[in-house]
């Protein structure tokens, strides 16, 4: 039961079918990677799991620790423990990072309970230090005018403050410089633990040098078409996707 388990998931946007009978299981304590060509449906998968209202689920199930996610509101899914680090984080003008994260933490507290401000800031500052974020960032508006790399760090900061059970990181490595990639990867590695499942979506093997995955999956045309261990990523880096596409076409 301690899994994020997806069975025969199909989803569409408008008339277009994007996910086709997708199967995939992420057990707690493991790190999996999904790779795949542009437009194969990786971000769509993450948004469907997070309950994005633009996508219609046309079939299948997605259970998190035994709870069906499909049909729940995005905030319910989030509070159940699914965190999505966005490929394109969204700006929220006028709302400071500190206030934003506070509101998110507060949404998880039982009615009537409030955040202890001193402890909150202590934790926030500590985690910002780890991610190499300047403390002055707390008062900046969420993602407004942030560089690509700053946005990605901020996603990881939120993830670590919210203590999720399952994390999906959608191309968190893209847009990071070499040093930032290392810092952010360390941040993600610190999140690894036996009670948490982590799914990283990436195009590049180099992220997987830092975050060593237990499994690597390849997505193509809305399905997982191949799974393997970390060597699969190396193989893809070497050969590209054509050989997999050909295999799929032949099958």
């Amino acid at each position: 039961m301690s899994t994020l388990q997806i069975d025969n998931l199909s989803a569409s946007v408008g008339k277009e079918q994007i996910l086709n009978n997708l199967n995939f299981t992420l057990p707690k304590g493991e790190v999996h990677a999904i790779m795949g060509p542009n437009g194969s449906g990786k971000s769509t998968l993450s948004k469907v799991l997070a309950g994005h209202p633009d996508y219609q689920v046309t079939g299948g199930n997605a259970c998190m620790d035994g709870t069906e996610l499909l049909g729940l509101n995005p905030d319910e899914i989030a509070r159940l423990g699914l965190f999505l680090a966005f490929q394109y984080p969204v700006e929220v003008p006028g709302v400071s990072i500190a206030n934003f994260i506070r509101a998110a933490v507060k949404s998880r507290l039982p009615e009537g309970e409030s955040i202890k401000a001193v402890e909150f800031y202590k934790e926030l500052y500590l985690k910002m230090d780890d991610l190499g974020m300047d403390r002055s960032f707390t008062s900046r508006s969420m993602n407004e005018g942030f560089s690509g790399g700053e946005k990605k760090r901020c996603e990881i900061l939120q993830m670590s403050m919210l203590n999720p059970k399952y994390c999906i990181l959608d191309e968190t490595d893209s847009g990071l410089d070499i040093d930032a990639l290392r810092v952010v990867s360390e941040g993600i590695n610190q999140m690894k633990n036996p009670d948490r499942g982590i799914l990283v979506i990436t195009h590049y093997q180099r992220l997987l040098d830092y975050i060593v995955p237990d499994k690597v999956h390849v997505m193509w045309e809305g399905r997982i078409v191949r799974s393997g261990d970390k060597t699969l990523a190396l193989e893809l880096e070497d050969k590209g996707y054509d050989w997999i596409k050909e295999e799929v076409a032949a099958a």
Binding site: A50, G51, N73, F86, V90, F100, I101, S107
Partner: peptide, 10 residues
């Protein structure tokens, strides 16, 4: 959606 994904209701 972004804010909801962080746990806030609408």
């Amino acid at each position: 959606f972004y804010m909801q994904q962080r746990g806030l209701n609408q």
